[in-house]
Amino acid sequence: MTVLLAVVIGLLYTLGFYMLLRRSIVKLIIGLGLLGHAVNLLVFLAGRLTAGVPPVVPLGESALSAPYADPIPQALILTAIVIGFGVQAFAVVLIKRTYEVLGTDDLNQMVSTDREPPPGEDEE
């Protein structure tokens, strides 16, 4: 399972990266989504898989008894998911704004800030 999951994670990374390399801004956001899943799963797997023993102390006991799933990666992923959500939500609205302001969804049309305008055109 571990190896299989690692391979699937690699696939998700590849798919996410590939979508980040597309010229369409809409595809880019899909890529960010895929990449987010890939990263979260990687953190999850790196913390090792444990099936069926959530890190919740049974009622009446004072400590978890082994085996139990490492709660740390779970907490990290939870934080990362929420942060990722905030960032992605902002990114998707930014994409919408980009399309409205620029009138295109082609990233290759968005090169103006990297290049100097000819004299006389204050770029703002």
Binding site: F44, L49, T50, P54, P55, Y68, A69, Q74, I77
Partner: peptide
């Protein structure tokens, strides 16, 4: 996540 002991996740 649910399968691998992470219900909160």
């Amino acid at each position: 996540y649910a399968l691998f002991s992470a219900p909160d996740l």
